[in-house]
Simulated scan of single mutants.
Amino acid sequence: MGLIACKNEVEEQTVDIVDEIATPQLHLDQANNLAALPLHCIETEYPNKMGHVTAAPEDQKRPTDQHPVFYGCFDWHSAVHGYWSVVTLIKQFPKLEAREELLAKIKRNLTTENIAVEIAYLNTENNKTFERTYGWAWLLKLQQELDTWEDPQGQELAQILKPLSDIVIERYTDYLPKLNYAIRVGEHSNTAFDGICLGLCHTCW
């Protein structure tokens, strides 16, 4: 029920209440179609957009050497959310057709040794801001999915990824207080992505 004022007269008017729109439900056949995308790309090295700063000739390396975990799907952040989609689909759909193949790909690449290389890259002097903030947000979303996966494999993978996520969290806590205002350009540096981490990825902190 609402009131509308017009020419000093108050008129009573009925306002229809619109029902909330139901959240779309993903079905197994749709999940299988979605899973085909990361199944193809997370181990596809080329084409590749590296997007990093080189300081010397030896910095020019293959994607698999520079980022032995997240080298597929064209660029780093796409590789990360490719992993996120895989973990999310596996968790939601135990009967996913490519479940075992996807798990094998993740476990083959997401290893302690490979994460150490990813960390070493982020610690190079010229690449400490690499993938800020979009890639950072997706990494913490991946960490959240692994942390909340009630499966021994998921918990093992979560522990392997955690040292890299810890660095991103540290970079966030150093970066955000320096901002005088929010960055709202329509690009990957948009700090709205920080809200994804701070608002949704509380399990990572």
Rank of each mutant, 00 (worst) to 15 (best):
E97I: 14
E97N: 15
E97T: 15
E97C: 12
E97K: 15
E97G: 06
A98Y: 05
A98I: 05
A98C: 11
R99T: 12
R99N: 15
E100K: 11
E100G: 00
E100D: 14
E101I: 10
E101S: 14
E101F: 07
E101L: 14
L102N: 08
L102Q: 05
L102D: 08
L102T: 09
L102I: 06
L102A: 02
L103G: 04
L103Y: 09
L103P: 00
A104F: 06
A104L: 09
K105V: 03
K105I: 04
K105D: 05
K105Q: 14
I106A: 07
I106W: 09
I106M: 15
I106P: 02
K107M: 12
K107D: 13
K107V: 11
K107H: 08
R108G: 04
N109C: 09
N109W: 03
N109Y: 03
N109L: 13
N109R: 12
N109V: 04
L110S: 02
L110Y: 07
L110K: 00
L110H: 05
L110R: 01
T111W: 07
T111A: 06
T111D: 10
T111R: 05
T111C: 06
T111Q: 08
T111E: 10
T112L: 13
T112Y: 13
E113W: 01
N114R: 07
N114F: 08
N114M: 01
I115N: 04
I115P: 00
I115T: 01
I115E: 07
I115V: 13
A116M: 03
A116F: 03
A116S: 12
V117Q: 04
V117R: 10
E118M: 10
E118G: 02
E118N: 07
E118H: 07
E118D: 06
E118C: 07
E118Y: 04
I119Y: 01
I119G: 02
I119A: 06
I119D: 03
I119L: 15
I119S: 08
A120E: 07
Y121A: 11
Y121V: 08
Y121G: 05
Y121L: 14
Y121C: 06
L122A: 09
L122W: 09
N123R: 14
N123M: 09
N123E: 14
T124R: 13
T124D: 06
T124Y: 01
E125P: 05
E125Y: 08
E125S: 11
E125T: 12
E125G: 04
E125A: 13
N126C: 01
N126W: 07
N126M: 07
N127L: 04
N127R: 13
N127V: 04
